[in-house]
């Protein structure tokens, strides 16, 4: 054919796929989410072998391969183990809406737990006001607004009266 050596336009076909699904939380996660939604408290499970308190609760301790069947209530206060000041308008994939940057986002170990949980932090995006080791508390939505997922947490908030360690 006589199309040789001609520069061809590079054809691109845009597509969108929307995938609906129904997710079943399972027995242990269901109890965790129900406690969070109905009673505003965090529960975990304690491994009978290594005594590690795991949140969210799960039926098997991955390290020991034994059934977790001791339920424990956790504090709503904890310690910051890592954080970031996010400058990107990341989209919440469950709502399709972006979180307005800059915002602080962190990983907190609730007292009594060996696990961490990640969420927004209600503090100015200023390195003098947020640090690893800072004491935090969870702020929940009102009971009637809670639906039983991590969006029931509005954010973490620093406990008052803390000074940045030098």
């Amino acid at each position: 054919m006589n199309q040789k050596n001609t520069v061809t336009e590079q054809i691109c076909v845009p597509m969108t796929v929307d995938v609906p699904y129904r997710f079943a939380a399972g027995k242990y996660m269901a109890r965790f989410l129900t406690e969070l939604r109905d009673n505003g408290r965090f529960v975990g499970v304690k491994c009978p072998s290594c005594n590690r308190v795991q949140m969210p609760p799960r039926v098997v301790c991955a390290a020991c391969h034994v059934k977790n069947d001791e339920w424990v209530e956790l504090s709503s206060e904890g310690t910051m183990v890592g954080f970031t000041i996010m400058y990107l308008p990341l989209t919440d994939p469950t709502t399709g809406k972006p979180h307005e940057p800059p915002f602080v986002y962190g990983s907190v170990r609730l007292d009594g737990s060996d696990s961490t949980v990640e969420h927004m932090v209600n503090v100015e995006p200023d390195l003098d006001k947020i640090w690893v080791g800072m004491r935090m508390k969870v702020v929940l939505r009102d009971r009637e607004e809670r639906i039983g997922d991590l969006s029931d947490i509005i954010h973490f908030e620093p406990l008052p009266g803390q000074k940045r360690p030098q």
Partner: peptide, 24 residues
């Protein structure tokens, strides 16, 4: 805490929307 418990099922409907650009 109570170790024996009866838990109602907990199911949610969600979806993921993904865009793509296929180059021919």
């Amino acid at each position: 805490m109570e170790n024996k418990f009866v838990q109602a099922p907990f199911e949610v409907d969600q979806h993921i929307t993904a865009h793509s650009n296929y180059f021919a």
